[in-house]
């Protein structure tokens, strides 16, 4: 337990960069599943490790021990008191962050739904009479596509179809579940924040590809995205930020539509990520097994 329990807490630091780079190389749909899945798995393992650490510490408290009919001190327990206390604090933080994240999403979705209620509806589209160009998919049953008039006017008819097909792909693919899963995972382990932008990008690419297939013309799809982005950029002068070395998501999406390239995942990255996930899960299981074992021993000692 002494080593195994720490591994799931540290592995996301290695696995998240590997997953991010792997996601870059994969097709959008696969990348989205990989990123969200890895994040959830890593978060689950690290949270389990925290819980095990805290629980082991809790066993030293007489009331808890009495509850479990344990003999103090628990045999085979090598977790120090400060570590257990730290784990307990972190676990509380995680629980708070998860709750906060979840509540914020519920509130935000409700707010978006109220905003959409003010619009005009036809089919699965809700139009908001607003000059600011904006468009998003509003999850729900049924999901809705919310677009402002400013966005509709910025696009020509074919580009509008791209926009609608893109948002429909978000709704049909239940992409908001991916985003929610990752947000909750990030609440569990901050290293996973590294995966947020790649997942958002993969989901947009996924919807872009669906839209391009729906309208049957990748160039039109690329143009729609580009024009929408140019129309949506803020008019007010922005504080002059240093030009970033990396390209933002929108030009990358446009370029990807214009020049489709075969995705080839680097084997080493895939192996690294798989090893990280496997190790993380194995260590969490090992720690759990250890914990279970020490309780059994303690209980056995009690019954003797």
């Amino acid at each position: 337990m002494i080593y195994a329990v720490w591994v799931p807490l540290l592995l996301p630091l290695l696995a998240a960069p590997a997953a991010r780079r792997l996601g870059d190389a994969l097709a959008p749909r696969v990348a989205a599943w990989l990123l969200a899945g890895s994040a959830v798995a890593l978060a689950a393992c690290s949270t389990a490790a925290l819980a095990l650490l805290a629980a082991t510490g809790a066993l030293r408290l007489p009331p808890v021990a009495a509850l479990g009919h344990l003999v103090l001190p628990v045999v085979g327990d090598r977790v120090t008191v400060p570590a257990a206390c730290g784990a307990a604090v972190l676990l509380a933080c995680v629980a708070g962050a998860v709750l906060r994240t979840y509540r914020r999403r519920v509130v935000l979705t409700a707010r978006a739904r109220r905003a959409a209620a003010a619009g005009a509806t036809g089919g699965d589209l809700t139009v908001l009479d607003d000059d600011g160009p904006d468009a998003y998919a509003l999850p729900g049953r049924p999901g809705r596509i919310v677009v402002t008039t400013g966005m509709l006017r910025a696009l020509d008819p074919a580009e509008r179809e791209v926009l609608l097909a893109h948002e429909r792909a978000h709704l049909a693919g239940r992409h908001h579940h991916f985003l929610t899963a990752l947000a909750l995972a990030c609440a569990c382990h901050p290293a996973l924040l590294l995966l947020r932008a790649p997942l958002a990008y993969a989901l947009e690419r996924w919807a872009d590809e669906s839209a391009a297939a729906a309208v049957g013309d990748r160039r039109v799809a690329a143009r729609a995205i580009g024009r929408a982005a140019l129309a949506a950029r803020p008019t007010a002068a922005r504080p002059h930020v240093a030009l970033s070395a990396t390209t933002g998501p929108v030009p990358r999406r446009v370029a990807a539509l214009l020049t489709p390239s075969a995705s080839r995942a680097p084997k080493t990255l895939a192996l690294t990520l798989a090893a990280c996930l496997g190790l993380s899960a194995a260590c969490a299981l090992e720690a759990a097994h250890d914990f279970h074992g020490s309780i059994e021993i303690a209980q056995g000692a009690d019954h003797r």
Binding site: L243, P249, V250
Partner: peptide
């Protein structure tokens, strides 16, 4: 929370776009 059609552009992105 809400998947937005396009995200914001910085000046370099805009030029490249």
């Amino acid at each position: 929370v809400l998947a937005r059609f396009v995200s914001e552009l910085d000046p370099a992105d805009e030029r490249l776009l």
